[in-house]
Amino acid sequence: MSLENLELFEVFVRSSRGLDHKHVGSLHAEDAEHALDYARDCYTRRSEGISIWVVKSADICSSQEDDAPEFFDPSDDKPYRHATYYPLPKEVGNM
């Protein structure tokens, strides 16, 4: 009875100049151009955006939760990458 074989696209919207595109949701469309139009109609009805990206959901390669230890833990022990690791004497001011 139902039939739905349009492709799924993820939608990213830049809400104003100077900001990153942010993921806002997904929609179905026949191709990327079409998805852009629908993203405009479905996700920016209140002028939420000035720029839109759409990406086929199937084209997104995502890290897996199972990989998280190998992926993300190693950076946990590199505190020297953070500015707070280096206390400065008051006298030198901000750096």
Partner: peptide, 11 residues
Amino acid sequence: PFLEEDIALGN
């Protein structure tokens, strides 16, 4: 014919 188009027609 589907939700996205319903919304677009509304606009």
